[in-house]
Design a protein around this nucleic acid. Structure first.
Length: 293
RNA sequence: GGAGGAGUAGCGAAGUGGCCAAACGCAGCUGACUGUAAAUCAGUUCCUUCGGGUUCGGUGGUUCAAAUCCGCCCUCCUCCA
């Protein structure tokens, strides 16, 4: 059984995870797409070094800001760690807000090894033609993916070019059953409360020196680095002339949008128990843990 | 006191007689999600028993027909006193 703490940003995942993991002697695996980046500390709201020292952490601070990292690497690394811990009978807690990353670990998602596919001719096509092309090689996926969702249409085509199999055919081969048994929990705040927490946290980030964190990093890494696509950093990079207040507004807005997508994903893509209060979630996790012994 | 300008849905903003329950943007709400996922994309937002009903500062008119034209009133802005 692995324990997962998911849900929205600023919902208190980190704190809950630390508390729970300490109580049961678990290791924590980060399930957040941007906490894998070293030195992106303030803006990704990582647990502090002191907090991290309380419980062994994995998949946090593992790549440099200018390195590409994707779900493919994440899945592989996470499974290795989980298998190792499970073999030693150490409980595993995954905490994070990147739902798809977590899904790829929990379920039978199979990613083909990266191979070169020449996408140049497709990138020139307009959305409509691109989608028509997809329909000619993979009707099922074409039906599922909206033609305006260019990124996904392109990816589906790329899969076909790389593997010779359509995206939908590959997915049909995969089991629908979870790869690992899991218990997942989230703290579901009222929208108003969560919004207030988000704003408060962004203010805190600025007070903690988010601006200078970025400035220092930009001395070493180009502003186009993958790590800088994280909310908080990208807004500062794109709007170098903004005042703190303007940036806080923008980052706040983007974070609220992000939080909404997270909620939709977690509620609809997982079997998840949601609680209004952190203490209730903790109690539920502890009960589940005891029951599993 | 005088001269101009403006008041449109939660906000911004088009529209200047019928094709207007009213473009577009934002915000909000719902959803999709298998290698950029803190990303990408879609739907939806006056009321409704889905027949229809009530809107464009207020009010009274003109017209077969008004957000659009006319009168009066209210509010705001600029300039002059």
């Amino acid at each position: 059984m692995i324990y997962i703490i998911g849900g929205q940003t600023a919902s208190g995942k980190t704190e809950l995870a630390l508390e729970f993991a300490q109580k049961i002697g678990a290791h924590i695996i980060n399930g957040d797409a941007f906490q894998v980046y070293r030195r992106l500390d303030i803006g990704t709201a990582k647990a502090s070094k002191e907090e991290q020292s309380l419980v062994p952490h994995h998949l946090i601070d593992i790549v440099d800001i200018n390195e590409a990292f994707s779900i493919f690497e994440y899945q592989e690394l996470a499974r290795k760690i989980i298998d190792r811990l499970v073999a030693k009978n150490i409980p595993v807690v995954i905490v994070g807000g990147s739902g798809l990353y977590i899904r790829s670990v929990l379920f039978d998602y199979r990613f083909s090894p990266n191979s070169e596919a020449d996408m140049a001719r497709f990138e020139k096509m307009d959305n409509y033609r691109l989608h028509q092309y997809l329909a000619s090689i993979d009707e099922i996926s074409a039906e599922k993916i909206h033609f305006n969702n260019r990124r996904r249409v392109l990816r589906a085509i790329e899969i076909y070019l790389q593997t010779g199999l359509s995206k939908s055919a590959l997915e049909l081969e995969q089991s629908k059953q979870p790869y690992y048994p899991y218990t997942m929990v989230m703290v579901d705040w009222d929208k108003e409360q969560l919004d207030a927490r988000i704003l408060e946290r962004i203010r805190l980030m600025f007070a903690q020196g988010l601006r200078s964190e970025l400035a220092e990093l930009l001395e070493t890494f180009p502003s186009s680095s993958p790590g800088f696509r994280a909310i908080g950093y990208k807004e500062m990079i794109e709007n170098a002339n903004y005042s703190d207040e303007q940036l806080i507004d923008l980052i706040n807005k983007n974070t609220i949008h992000y939080a909404k997508r997270q909620k939709t994903f977690f509620k609809n893509q997982f079997n998840i128990s949601s609680f209004t209060k952190r203490e209730e979630a903790l109690e539920f996790l502890l009960d589940t843990f005891k029951g599993a012994l």
